[in-house]
Design a protein around this nucleic acid. Structure first.
Length: 230
DNA sequence: GGCCAGGACACCA
DNA sequence: TGGTGTCATGGC
């Protein structure tokens, strides 16, 4: 039986959660995609959407040889919308994809390589300036495509943290991100695996079993403890 | 038939 | 700055 770290020790408790999830599910090897540009497109398409619907859209784009910055730049937004219909919000997501490839064409010659040489903070700031890319999408691109260390906060992360009673002291994206990045070693591979494990756990456990029965985090899944970190 | 899903943006007070 | 409405298909 593992020793459960005290609630005051955020770092140890975050590592405890990570170890438990890794034991339970094994390494996830994220992001599930062929290539960096597919990760970018997938990050936009998965906004408020289940991954199975995203896969259909990705397959459509691939089968029509459209999954490249240059190809998507050349076709009209309406055609992108037809290809990604299965993801829902297809008109607005087509606009977002079009905005990104247009921006990449204008400033980086259709290539992610130059973009990804920027330091993390600059890269994040510039991605956030592109229409349709918010904090979670930007961080997913930075972590999984650019392979730089930022912690991705998504709905699963928030839900699981709430369930195990760790409160970052605010509900903002930044407060959750600061909790992880301020209490874990700065490491891209750890951030990658941690977020992927959260998604896996969120899908398999928290959504399927709201009562936490049989949960590998049940030892700390109290709904009661509230940790306030500075 | 109702509810929810790995957000982001526009608009308003 | 924070709250609310909108975008929308597919699976359960």
């Amino acid at each position: 039986m593992d020793i459960i770290p005290p609630v005051e020790d955020i770092s140890e408790r975050l590592l405890f959660i990570y170890d438990r999830l890794l034991q339970c599910y094994g390494a996830q090897h994220w992001w599930p995609a062929d290539g960096d540009f597919e990760i970018v497109v997938g990050a936009i398409l998965t906004q408020m959407t289940t991954w199975s619907n995203v896969e259909k859209a990705i397959d459509n784009l691939k089968s029509h040889n459209l999954l490249s910055p240059a190809a998507l730049y050349q076709i009209p937004t309406s055609e992108i919308a037809e290809e990604i219909y299965s993801t829902g919000f297809y008109k607005s997501k087509a606009r977002k994809i079009k905005a990104f490839v247009t921006w990449l064409h204008d400033y980086y010659n259709d290539s992610l390589d130059g973009l990804f040489t920027l330091p993390v903070l600059s890269l994040r700031e510039i991605l956030l300036s592109v229409y349709g890319i918010g904090e979670e999408t930007a961080d997913s691109i930075i972590l999984y495509a650019a392979r730089k260390p930022v912690f991705v906060i998504d709905a699963y992360t928030r839900r699981i943290m709430q369930r195990i009673g760790i409160n970052p002291g605010g509900d903002s994206y930044h407060s959750f991100q600061a909790l992880f990045m301020g209490n874990l070693p700065v490491n891209e591979k750890t951030y990658n695996e941690y977020h992927a494990l959260f998604v896996r756990h969120g899908k398999e456990r928290c959504r399927a079993r709201p009562d936490c029965a049989g949960c590998c985090l049940s030892a700390i899944c109290s709904h009661r403890n509230s940790i306030v970190s500075g």
